[in-house]
């Protein structure tokens, strides 16, 4: 089932399906190694609508809520 990254519970593994949003967001995510088809682990999320931390290719990336809302993923 394809869901929004913000709706995924910490601890789950997901596959990136599509990145919505403009050129800027797509390119910045791709620079940090997040592309459609990649697997990532959702690690923690901060309180009060804070960012979500994902593990990707052996690295940690913090993604703000409004960016995370543009990433569609599928739990694996």
């Amino acid at each position: 089932m394809v869901v929004n990254l913000i709706n995924v519970k910490p601890g789950s593994r997901v596959k990136v399906i599509r990145i919505q949003g403009g050129l800027g967001v797509r390119q910045r995510l791709s620079c940090l190694g997040i592309h459609p088809g990649d697997l990532m682990a959702v690690q923690t999320s901060a309180i009060m609508q804070g960012p979500i931390v994902v593990g990707i290719h052996g690295n940690k990336v913090a993604i703000g809520r409004c960016v995370a809302a543009k990433i569609l993923v599928e739990e694996v």
């Binding site: 800027g24 910045r28 995510l29 809520r65 960016v67």
Partner: peptide, 12 residues
């Protein structure tokens, strides 16, 4: 203006 949102590496 809406701030572009954070995408930041967390180094080890």
């Amino acid at each position: 203006e809406v701030t572009p949102g954070m995408i930041m590496e967390i180094p080890s």
